[in-house]
Structure formats: structure tokens, C-alpha cells
Amino acid sequence: MTATVGRQAQAAARASDVWKVYGSGEAQVTALRGVTCEFERGRFTAIMGPSGSGKSTLMHCLAGLDTVTRGTVMIGDTTVTGLGDAGLTRLRRDKVGFIFQQFNLLPTLTAQENILLPLSIAGRKPDPAWYDTVIDTVGLRDRLGHRPAQLSGGQQQRVACARALVARPEVIFADEPTGNLDSRAGAEVLNFLHNSVREHGQTIVMVTHDPTAAAYADRVVFLADGQIVSELIEPTADTVLDTMKKLDAPAEVGN
């Protein structure tokens, strides 16, 4: 089953009939089976699904971190499929931001240096007004000189969010951003992501298995066995949970 959702002209990222096969012969695993999906600009989309459903693979393929076996992936007007290393580097530099489960800050750099790292790698100067806006939004102004080790988990993840935002990418991909945080810190980060979509029109694609986290999104796409099986617009934690239960049940019987 293929869900075609929200056909708008302004897609920030798009997957068309994406297949991903790992290995060969008996060890062959098909992670994605013809996924077609669009992610509108200025919206917060969550990708959910049980373990092994292919949600992380889908995100990696969308972000150009992994190659697809078949089909095409586009970010904005760039076709990701088939890009070489230099093209992918440029894509990551200009169009894509990442937020990781493990924060992935450089321990030797201060919060400020971590936030500005993508720009300094690209050799660009930050836009001071936007930089100020980002810093104020994440509420880290008094922590800018601290090293990651001196920050709490929630603060570290907010630094990571600021790092993703500051370059104004086409899409931010967030991989279980609250996976390593307690519920309170997690809520802070999610609120912040939600706001950056509301207030600044940022596009965010988030992979999560937490229904509460998914509830912050504008839309949830559900994956099972490498296919899109369902979606929810304006989800709540309860509706997400219900959908998840329905997805899990047949799978468990099947096993």
C-alpha cells in the first residue's frame, strides 16, 4: 500500500518509489519497498513505525546518507539520487541539517563554536540577526561559552538544534531527538522544534517511536515492513498510540 499525502507544489523533500535492499542471496533484507512520500515545506512531519519497519532507513535515504536501490529522492529541486561525494557534501552543507539521538557535539568546542561549526566548515559568516534569533529561541545565551560536558542533556540537544537551524537548511532531519532525554527535557526540545516550524517556517522530518513526541508534529507517517501503511494529520498522543497498536497487532500474529 502506498500513501500519497498532501500533494503540494512546495515539497521540501520527496521520495518516489524508493526501494532499499541490503545484502544479497539468502542474507538479503528489503528495508524499503517502493516508498513514495512528500514532505511539505514549513511543516513538522514525524515518521513512526515499529523496530525494523524501515523508518530510519527512509530518513537516511532522504538525507542522502544512504543510497537507494531503486527510485529517486529529491530535496528541494535537487535530485539526491546519483549525486557523487562532492555533490552530497554540498547538499549537506547547504540544504540539510541533522539532529541526532546522541547529540553529537564536539566535546572540545564550546556551545557557540558547536553551533557555528557547519557555517565555519562551509566557510560562511552567520547572519547576525538570525543567529541572535536562534540563540534566543533555544534560550542558551548564558551558556554559549560552556563545553558540552558542562551542559545537561536537554541543553546539549538544544545546542544541537541550534546548530541545525543556524544554517537555515531546506530540511532538518531529526533522528530520535528525545531518545536520550528525560520527558521534561524532551518536551523542551520538541516545543522548540515545533516553534521553529511555526514561527520560522522550518521544515523538519523526525524519526521517533515515542507517541508523545510524534504528537508535536503536524503530521505522522507510519511505516511497517518497509512500506507506508498509514498517516495522521494533526495527531495527538492517543491517536498515534492507537494507530501504533493496530500496526503492531498483525505483525505479532504474523511472527
Binding site: D85, L117, A122, R163, A167
Partner: peptide, 16 residues
């Protein structure tokens, strides 16, 4: 490895 991969993820080229 993770640190260098991060650099790559946020836009560093192989040459960098």
C-alpha cells in the same frame, strides 16, 4: 569516527 562522521554530516568535504 563518530566525530569525523558528524563533520561530514554537517557539510565537511572529504578534503576538509
Amino acid at each position: 569516527t563518530r566525530e569525523l562522521a558528524l563533520m561530514r554530516a554537517i557539510g565537511a568535504s572529504g578534503r576538509q
